[in-house]
């Protein structure tokens, strides 16, 4: 046990916690926005994968990491747009649409990678760029906190700002109010002239935007290249985090951090001979348990309400 604590209470661990949480957090925020608009986007994994590849390709050809980031975000948002078009215009089932996006991405990225680099495994032959890490003046000199908080990848800081931005968007802007109203009672929204379809388009595009930031981080920060299936379930963890976080911004952010910790711990826990494969399932187990507790309590509440004895 001591050895475990020794691992956890190090600045290295705290630093890596933020590092591994970043992509989960981005995607979870994306899932949050679309879920609040009443439209569940399970294509997160696929959107992240596409944007990760796009970031590598665009940055390799333009030799600019920033243009690469732009390319990543545009392509991820475009994929979300395609999903939105099919589900909102053609009435494709949103879940099957998400399955299609994931299928497209897992093979499509390898297809394009192979065409451009002749390699199906990774983008080593493409000279792609990475986004910079940032030392924060003053903070970096504080003992303990400095090494934890400073020196992160720029998108890690962006992800923290994104939590604030999404919170502000959902709770403090007219658009957020409309998104939440469409998710909760679309008839009410429609009766006062709010276009449900327009809001859902917007929400899906935003979910694609945030997921693609997570994707860009994977190939232009977390790693400095694209490898096939590099998202490795982070999109699903994000959906789990959003569900566990009960669709609130704070809850989603905290659960993302918790699931990030499970990820960061998987190495640490191996010291205790707990296999990484099992630790990797923790977020999903936690989500099923969370979902179950919620469903049971909802059912109880409903039964209680109607079965309560009548006061005469």
């Amino acid at each position: 046990m001591n050895s475990l604590l020794n691992v956890i209470f190090t600045t290295d661990f705290a630093f890596s916690l933020l590092r591994v949480t970043t992509p989960i957090l981005f995607a979870a925020l994306g899932a949050l926005i679309s879920n609040r608009a009443g439209i569940i986007n399970i294509g997160m994994e696929g959107i992240m994968l596409v944007s990760a590849l796009a970031g590598v390709i665009v940055s390799a050809y333009t030799q600019s990491a920033w243009v690469g980031l732009l390319g990543a975000v545009l392509s991820g948002t475009l994929i979300a747009g395609i999903l939105a078009f099919f589900t909102l215009k053609f009435k494709t089932h949103i879940i099957l649409g998400g399955v299609a996006i994931n299928m497209f991405a897992s093979g499509g990225t390898v297809f394009i990678l192979y065409l451009l680099s002749g390699d199906k495994g990774s983008s080593t032959s493409l000279a792609s760029k990475v986004l910079p890490s940032v030392q924060i003046p003053l903070i970096k000199d504080i003992p303990v906190l400095g090494p934890i908080l400073s020196g992160h990848h720029i998108l890690t800081y962006v992800s923290i700002l994104a939590v604030l931005a999404v919170y502000y968007l959902l709770n403090r802007t007219p658009l957020g109010l409309r998104i939440r109203s469409v998710g909760e009672n679309p008839h009410a929204a429609q009766s006062v002239g709010v276009s449900v379809v327009k809001i859902q388009y917007t929400a899906l595009l935003l979910s694609g935007f945030f997921a693609s930031l997570g994707g860009a981080y994977m190939s232009m920060g977390y790693l400095s290249l694209f490898t096939r299936d590099m998202i490795a379930g982070r999109g699903w963890i994000a959906i789990a985090a959003e569900s566990m976080g009960r669709s609130t911004t704070i809850g989603t952010a905290l659960t993302s951090l918790l699931f990030g910790a499970a990820d960061a711990l998987s190495n640490a826990l191996q010291v205790l001979k707990i296999p990484a494969e099992l630790i990797a399932t923790l977020p999903y187990v936690a989500t099923v348990i969370g979902l179950l507790i919620y469903a049971v309590s909802e059912t109880r509440k409903k039964n209680k309400k109607v079965k309560s004895p009548v006061a005469k």
């Binding site: 409309r178 909760e184 009672n185 009410a188 709010v194």
Partner: peptide, 13 residues
């Protein structure tokens, strides 16, 4: 919208 306050429902849209 049940989870909204009265004021929020009033001005939606």
């Amino acid at each position: 919208v049940p989870s909204f306050t009265v004021a929020e429902n009033m001005v939606l849209g």
